[in-house]
Design a protein around this nucleic acid. Structure first.
Lengths: 161, 161
DNA sequence: TATTGTTATACTCTATAACTATA
DNA sequence: TATAGTTATAGAGTATAACAATA
C-alpha cells in the first residue's frame, strides 16, 4: 500500500536521503580547515617555544598596551582562569610588564617590553610564512573574502569571558 | 645619526609595525569561527546525547556502508585509537553493525542499521538548523563560496591517520 | 553586588606507544 | 614488513567553582 508514495514523508529511511551530507556542512569544512591551519601554526612556532594562543596574547598586549588580562580574555574569547599560565610564560621571558593601576587597585595594566615587541614581530613573521603555505591555493582577493565571511560568523560571539 | 633612516630595517622596533596583525590573520578568524560554530553544534546535539564527531562517524557509515574503522579515520582525519570509543557508543545504541570481512580477517566492515539511518537523519537535521543560525548573515552564494574556500585549505591534508 | 586576578580541578580532544592478529 | 583494531596514557585546551582583594 501507498505504493505511489505521494507523501513527503518516506515510509522507509534510506541512505539516499543522506548523500554528501558531511561535505555540505560548512561546519565540517570549518573544523577541518581550522585544524589543518592550527597544526601548521603550532609547527611554525615550535622552534621559538610558543603556541598560537601564546602569540595571540602577546600580540594583544602589543596592539593594545595598557590592557588588563580580563580585557584580553574578552578580546580573545578565553576564560580568565586560562590566561594566568600564558601570562606567566610571557612574563618569565621578559616580554611584558605589569603595572598596577593607581585608580583601581584590582587591576594590572600590561605593557610590552622592547624584547616583547621584537619577539611579537618574529612570531608574527613565522605565522605569516605559515599562512602563505596554507593559503597558497587562494588568491589575495579570495583570502580577503574568506576573512570577511569568517568574521561574519563569529564577530557577534559574546560567549568568551 | 641615521635620522633619515633609509634602511628598511628599523633601528627601534615599534608597535606601529604590528597594527591589526591578529585581525589580518586568516588563521585567527578560522579558529574563532570554528570554535563558535562547534559550540553551537555541540548544543544542537546535546539533547540526543551525541557530539559533532559522533555524528560525523555515523554519517560516514551511512554514506559509505562497508567502510572499515580505519577507512573512516582516514576520511575524517582522526586517529585509529580515538574512534574506538565513538564506535562503542554508536554500537551500544544499535546504530550500526560490524561484519567480519571473509577475505581479510583483520577487517570489520561497518553497516548502518535502520535505527542508525533514522538517527543520522535526525542528528543531521539538528545540525542543519544550527548551521542556519550561525550562517544567517551569509547569503546562499556566500555559504557555497565559503565552503569552496575552506576545502581549498584542508582538502590536501594527509596528516590524519 | 560586581569585578580582578588567581588556584584547583575536571572533562574533552588529541597524540603516541605498544600490543595481537592477520596479511 | 605493513595494516587493523585495541588499550593505556599523556598532553593540551577549555570549563566551572571558589577565594581574597577591591570597587
Amino acid at each position: 500500500m501507498n505504493e505511489t508514495n505521494l507523501s513527503r514523508t518516506p515510509t522507509k529511511v534510506s541512505a539516499d536521503h543522506i548523500r554528501d551530507a558531511l561535505d555540505q556542512l560548512v561546519g565540517y569544512h570549518l573544523r577541518r580547515a581550522s585544524v589543518h591551519d592550527l597544526n601548521g601554526a603550532v609547527a611554525a612556532l615550535d622552534d621559538v617555544g610558543a603556541r598560537p594562543i601564546t602569540m595571540s596574547v602577546l600580540l594583544s598586549i602589543v596592539e593594545q598596551p595598557g590592557s588588563t588580562s580580563a580585557d584580553i580574555c574578552r578580546m580573545l574569547g578565553i576564560k580568565r582562569a586560562n590566561i594566568v599560565g600564558l601570562l606567566q610564560q610571557l612574563e618569565a621571558r621578559d616580554l611584558f610588564l605589569r603595572k598596577d593601576d593607581p585608580a583601581d587597585q584590582r587591576i594590572q595594566r600590561l605593557y610590552p617590553t622592547e624584547t616583547g615587541l621584537k619577539t611579537a614581530l618574529d612570531w608574527l613573521n613565522r605565522i605569516r610564512q605559515h599562512e602563505e603555505k596554507t593559503l597558497r591555493r587562494l588568491s589575495l582577493e579570495e583570502r580577503a573574502e574568506l576573512r570577511r565571511l569568517l568574521s561574519l560568523i563569529w564577530s557577534e560571539d559574546t560567549s568568551g569571558e
